[in-house]
Simulated assay, not measured.
Amino acid sequence: MEENNKIFDDEEEELYEHFSLDVDPGQTPMRLDKLLAIHLKKSSRNKIQNAIDSQSVRVNGQVVKSSYKPKPGDRIVVALPKPPREPTEILPENIPLNIVYEDEAVLIVNKDAQMVVHPGFANWDGTLVNALVYHFGQLPTSKNGAIRPGLVHRIDKGTSGLLVIAKTEYAMQHLARQFADHSTERTYYALIWGEPEQDKGTINAKLGRSQKDRRVTEVYEDGGYGREAITHYEVLKRMRYVSLVKCNLETGRTHQIRAHMKYIGHPLFGDATYGGDRILRGNMFSKYKQFVENCFQILPRQALHAKSLGFEHPEKKEWMQFDSELPEDMQTLLEKWEAYVQHV
């Protein structure tokens, strides 16, 4: 049975052939998903099933189901969208940083909401990493081939708040282990649509990339796909149409708070990706509608701020705790909502 891995552009340039095989005459009849599980030993059954369901696996150029039993001579191709290319070099840029704390091992930065953390598709420069390279020169980088100096975690563009940067190899390994073990403390403040029924709650729902749009994270209730994700939340202030909540992350999945809050029916205010950029609570009379539109202009992003961060210092072995004020745009937004609900 011939197998290979190469660039695949016979039909669609944007697809990358991750794997292909030609079924030989002596192949024992079996389901497609089981056959692929034998040959793709580094891929889980869930990933294989997901690829088949998303039509990324084709037999003789045709979409088939998992139950299909390949025949001798069939050609099976697994083709997925090309992964975005990491830059081979990070150019230093003189971008100001809001440094909260610094010593020989770690650096704490309060990130502006509009800053992207690391270079990637559509954001190759102007990132936090470009600024770090300029201000600090050689920083340790990740071991997976990506050039992301000092980074052990990240927060989204459109989200403001605290990040810890490793300045030494030892600090990076020590901090990365803490994030992997979920022993760090991360608290976010978010303005959400509506008022949750309970003052406190825990959202335990697996998260994974959407099969329709990989820029979006979705909850997978059946548990067959996705990774464990746990968010603890507490309502700090109720304002009839919106609420200020505190969220503590037990895990750190992509868009975790944003996806979890949408899942329980309370998307983040202003979050265009998860439906929070339109009026979801309240009447649509003209004055209220104009008020909300003005609020969207004050904060044209998701209302989310990484407020506090705690971890064990890699060198001192002491617990370090940092807190930050809400950014001006989010503070102004909260004041406007508080004033509005007092007069309606």
Rank of each mutant, 00 (worst) to 15 (best):
T168I: 01
H153V: 00
G208W: 10
D199G: 12
R186K: 15
W193R: 11
Y189C: 03
P140A: 07
F136P: 02
R209G: 06
H135G: 04
F136Y: 15
G208K: 12
M172E: 04
E185F: 12
S183F: 01
N144S: 14
Y134N: 08
H135I: 04
R186D: 07
T168C: 02
T159M: 08
N144C: 07
I165H: 02
G161D: 13
P149D: 03
R148A: 06
E218V: 15
V164H: 07
A176S: 15
T184V: 15
R215I: 02
V216K: 15
M172N: 00
H135N: 06
E185Q: 13
A180W: 01
A171Q: 02
L207W: 11
Q178R: 07
F136A: 03
F136M: 03
F136W: 08
G201Y: 09
E197S: 14
E169G: 00
D181R: 11
A171W: 00
Y134S: 04
R177H: 02
L163T: 03
W193A: 06
G150Q: 04
R186E: 06
H182K: 14
D199E: 14
M172R: 15
Y189D: 12
I155N: 11
G208Y: 08
G145Q: 08
T202I: 15
G194R: 09
T141C: 12
Y134T: 05
R186C: 09
G201C: 10
G150P: 02
R214L: 07
K143Y: 11
Y189N: 12
R215K: 14
K206N: 14
Q178N: 07
Q138E: 14
P149M: 04
T217S: 15
D156M: 09
T217A: 14
R215C: 03
P149W: 01
E197H: 14
I155C: 10
K212W: 04
D199V: 01
A190C: 11
R214H: 14
T141D: 05
D156T: 10
E185D: 13
D213Y: 11
H174R: 12
T141N: 06
R148K: 14
E169P: 02
Y189E: 14
T184R: 05
A166C: 07
Y170M: 01
A146D: 11
P140D: 02
R177G: 01
K200V: 09
L163Q: 06
L207Y: 11
T168Y: 00
P149N: 06
R154G: 05
A205N: 10
L132K: 03
K200Y: 12
A190V: 06
V164Q: 06
H174Q: 12
L191Y: 05
A171M: 00
